Simulated scan of single mutants.
Amino acid sequence: MAKILTLLTILLLNLSHSLSFSPENPTNRRILVLLDDFAIKSSHSLFFDSLLSRNYQLDFKLADDPKLALQRYGQFLYDGLIIFAPYIDQCGVEFDDDPAAMVIDHTSYALSEFEGDHTLIASDSNMNMLQAAVLFQGTGHSVNPSNSHVVQVLSASPSAYLANPLSKLSSAPTFTGPRISLVSVVQARNNARILISGSLKLFSDRFLRSGLQKAGSSTRFDKSGNEQFVTELSKWIFHERGHLKAVNVRHHKTGQTDEPSIYRITDDLEYSVEIYEWSGVNWEPYVADDVQVQFYMMSPYVLKTLSTDKKGLYYTSFKVPDVYGVFQFKVEYQRLGYTSLSLAKQMAGFFVFTLVHLYSK
């Protein structure tokens, strides 16, 4: 299986980018980490230790290293890239024109004896597994609501706005309320995964270890939700979560086992496919109730939702339409948070199996 390109980006302050990735065996672990300062290795050691404990091989270099190379002889030297340095790229989101702008919230801020400008935000993540809020301090961005490939995973509260905390406002802020995304993820049509954040401190040891109390709340947490938040997000970005593969696509006449070279109209047939999800360690059965198959010629003549044995096998049966022509079995599966599957198996013995490939710009 040829290797393909995926992308993880933590923008403005961080960028992570999976360069060489196998959809059949997503265990690639060579990660290049680009830093603005080598001191970040110690100030963000908990995040890096989490990656090391999951068998990632980290190679730390300065972002402005003139000898920096990602490829040699046409081959990628790394499977992923993390940039913890100032970096700007659009990636489908919009940033404020003022590079000094920060998210300010006079209601949903975290109590701190060191921060008095209400830029230390305590935000509730869209990840329901977190018990405590996430500490955030940095800039925000906006997401195009018509772009179904971008999802906010950490949003600002209705009282937040984006501005330079050292300057007086001369006009109404452009970015306000939940429109401000603190952390967003993108999964492109080619399964490239992108994470966008405007805060390097989000990943720091200080924020991962810090206790947390929201303004106006009497509840104090001994530990913020940052460590669990960045760990689970990194697992998804590096395809330890939500990565699917389909194998053993089969079809045959009902009551038989061999795949025929041709079907006749009104034949009863059976179709099956096995779908598995990568757990970070091994392949496990994927269980869902929304996988469908099309019996397709120019348009779908049959559309069936597949049943599952909850052990990875999906199956159905139907009657061949009373229409002459060359048909295909097609599965086009797209679900938020999972890699897409695109399967096609044509009649007359010709077999096509495709996954949506990732590519480099």
Rank of each mutant, 00 (worst) to 15 (best):
D289G: 06
R241Q: 10
V273Y: 04
F238N: 10
V247K: 06
P300D: 03
L313F: 09
H251N: 12
T254F: 09
V230I: 15
Y296S: 10
I265E: 03
I265G: 00
M298P: 01
T257G: 05
K304H: 10
D290T: 08
K311Q: 09
N248K: 14
V281Q: 13
K253A: 00
R241M: 15
D309Q: 15
Q256G: 09
E284G: 04
G242I: 04
I262K: 11
H239F: 13
V291P: 00
F238P: 00
Y263T: 01
L233D: 00
T305P: 06
Y301S: 09
I265D: 07
V287D: 07
Y314W: 13
H252Y: 08
V287T: 05
E240I: 10
I275P: 01
R250W: 10
W283D: 06
S261H: 10
Y276Q: 09
E232Q: 03
Q256M: 11
I275M: 08
T254W: 12
S272E: 11
T231F: 02
T305C: 08
H251F: 10
D290I: 05
D268F: 07
L313D: 03
G280A: 07
A288R: 14
R264F: 14
V247R: 12
K311N: 14
H251S: 15
E277P: 01
F295T: 08
Q292I: 12
R241F: 11
A246Y: 08
Q294K: 15
Q256N: 04
E270F: 12
D268R: 13
E274I: 06
T308K: 08
Y271E: 03
V287S: 07
K310D: 13
G280P: 00
V249I: 12
E232P: 01
W283R: 13
E284H: 05
S307V: 00
V247L: 11
H251V: 00
V287N: 07
R250L: 09
R241G: 04
S299T: 14
V247F: 13
T308R: 01
L269G: 02
V230A: 05
R264Y: 09
V287C: 00
I237P: 01
M297C: 09
T308H: 01
L233R: 12
S261K: 12
P260G: 11
I262C: 06
R264N: 09
A246K: 03
I265F: 05
H251K: 05
R241E: 01
P260Y: 12
E259L: 07
F238I: 00
N248L: 05
D258Q: 09
W278C: 03
L244K: 07
I262D: 03
L313T: 04
F229S: 01
S272C: 09
E259F: 14
E232C: 08
I265K: 12
G280Q: 02
K235S: 06
Y271R: 02
S307D: 06
S307H: 15
T231M: 06
K235M: 14
V230G: 02
W236A: 06
A246I: 12
Y301R: 12
H252S: 09
